[in-house]
Design a protein around this nucleic acid. Structure first.
Lengths: 111, 111
DNA sequence: CGCTTACGTTAGCGTCTGCTTACCTTACTG
DNA sequence: CAGTAAGGTAAGCAGACGCTAACGTAAGCG
């Protein structure tokens, strides 16, 4: 999951993901969309593959990459769940507010 | 948005976000949870603030940081929308499959 | 006023990263 | 078979990144 987050942090890799989101594409095909060399694309694809955000299909000398929807879903789910406030935490939040209010009153009284 | 993605890629920053997700906390308070120095935390907070993922509230010499829900929501929404397949793209997908099927048959015929 | 507390900022450092160039492997084609 | 097309890999380099140590700053306190 850490790998996925780091992989997506790179603008070029995000563009690549966008390219292979629906279509599967070869490395050269992808490389044409950028100003960087093909090896650089290969390296980005390796990072994305390690993060399990893309899959490969071999056909002769060509390698077809495409986005792996499950990997992307896992990432978004994880991100969304990262800061969702449950009822439990909401209750704690209310308690914290009250605590702060008391504390503020105390500080005011001290002056 | 790019800034937000890069900010979240860092494990320490994710932990910080988690800490100030519901409570607002001071820098020293946050720093206690880590093995790195306080200035390092300050720098991480700067990155998070630049990415508009946290907000600050000054109170005397203390600075209270807390997560900015809107920023987090924007990020997750953007990530989720990044690869959601609309009906439009689904139709394209089907068409692509058919095109591939034809192409495969053609290649087979060529051999 | 000087002292302390709570932070931010800067300089410098080792490490990681993204990129290019050069090379190697593998599969197709004549 | 040699030649070519497609793509992975390695070395090396410049820049970004994360961290620390040292210093600067502003607010509270005696």
């Amino acid at each position: 999951m850490d790998a996925a987050a780091r992989a997506v942090a790179e603008p070029t890799r995000r563009e690549i993901l966008h390219l292979v989101r629906h279509d599967e594409r070869t490395v050269s095909d992808i490389a044409e969309h950028f100003d960087i060399t093909r090896p650089a694309i290969s390296q980005h694809l390796r990072v994305l593959a390690d993060a399990e955000l893309v899959t490969v299909r071999n056909e002769g000398t060509r390698r077809y990459y495409r986005a792996r929807p499950e990997g992307l879903a896992e990432l978004t789910d994880w991100m969304a769940g990262f800061w969702t406030s449950s009822l439990q935490s909401l209750a704690i939040e209310v308690e914290r507010e009250q605590w702060n209010a008391r504390k503020k009153k105390q500080r005011k009284a001290q002056r």
